[in-house]
Design a protein around this nucleic acid. Sequence first.
DNA 1: AGAAACGACATGAAAAATTTATAAGCGTGT
DNA 2: ACACGCTTATAAATTTTTCATGTCGTTTCT
Lengths: 231, 231
Amino acid sequence: MGAKVLVVEDEEAISQLLAYNLGKEGFSVSISADGDEAMIAVDEQKPDLVLMDWMLPNVSGIELCRRLRTGNETRDIPVIMLTARGEEEDRVRGLDVGADDYVTKPFSMSELVARMRAVLRRTAPALAGDVATFADIVLDRQLCRVRRAQRDVHLGPTEFRLLDVLMQRPGRVFSREQLLDRVWGQDVYVEIRTVDVHIGRLRKAINKRGDRDPIRTVRSSGYALDETYSG
Amino acid sequence: MGAKVLVVEDEEAISQLLAYNLGKEGFSVSISADGDEAMIAVDEQKPDLVLMDWMLPNVSGIELCRRLRTGNETRDIPVIMLTARGEEEDRVRGLDVGADDYVTKPFSMSELVARMRAVLRRTAPALAGDVATFADIVLDRQLCRVRRAQRDVHLGPTEFRLLDVLMQRPGRVFSREQLLDRVWGQDVYVEIRTVDVHIGRLRKAINKRGDRDPIRTVRSSGYALDETYSG
DNA sequence: AGAAACGACATGAAAAATTTATAAGCGTGT
DNA sequence: ACACGCTTATAAATTTTTCATGTCGTTTCT
């Protein structure tokens, strides 16, 4: 499973948005609405990263950050601040109290995720989500490489993203529509059957040697990565 | 039992439709016709999810949503809005007041149910209804898999849905007509005896090893999962 | 009660329909 | 020219439906 992320944000709309999108990226997300809740959540869950709003009720973001930095257990948890405007002043104060990075609203998900990965890469490379593992398959997003059983496997960009998506939730069945959305993008029109073809190519590439096929076809539903499958 | 859903909708035609179809999906549905009723119903029933129309008499959907968000007990109840048109403006305002998702009319039942499950998955995974269990049989809708006694059981799409329906109300007897409606769909014409054949196949698949048959034939009525069945 | 008749269900197998896999062609950008 | 992606056609696989036949339980008649 991906890194545990604690989102500290009082605006429901934003926290839900984050939960949803970060979830899709493979992070395991929990939410606190204010600093007090957050401190409890930190103790309980020991998140790998904290994402917090600069403006918070009760305890301000700055204060929360300071408390994290003084706790023995929490000292090393990286923090990313969400600020309303790119005011240099805030930035400086934010970095001052120990934030590892900051992102200004409005931000794009991909930018946020990129920064999260960047921070995690420094503090907990294994959790940065740069590499995903399933059975003997390893996918490295940084290096854009896939290996199976210690052997390099060459994939085209599309097959790479396809495998990436499948590996984000092993076992889960993705419909062709979902795969089109996630691999090709939301507003791209491609034939639905094209998915089959790329699944086929992915299979061929990944099972070169007589390896067991990890991709399960779920008739009338879609595809999934799967460990065991016995009729 | 499935999640409790409160439908807030003044148009009788729509609320009845929802009650009927969500009931079939295993949700436990109650209805309020306006915002005032809804507030009372929420207190009394503590639903797991609220499904509300954007336009409501007396108290508007927005206002109702806002009130839910301020109540201590009701703060965490997820809300899905039903809006007339996919107007971005409404969407933004909806998310602003704290709706978790919104669905535009006209919508398909399957889309609505999918979104409901998605929201519940975040807030109350146990209630999302993604997995159903009966005795030693586990059916997972996400993974599209059925296991009996830790062993994978392969089912065709129809047998899968058939088992799904039966497992929604263990012990209850479903007539062949009901099964045709729920498994095949309302306006599909197939021979009534076809149900027998699929029940037969489901039995064969699920009892591969001399397991006891959990499906009870109720002569001249239909079929049911046997509730007296144990292990 | 016993036998016959009847309705309802189970089952196997063939036919039909649906869905997926694969190969080949075409286009595009490098 | 090459690598890659999209589409399409056709083959292959799987699933669904129907139908014929056998079985089982109930009811009815003697």
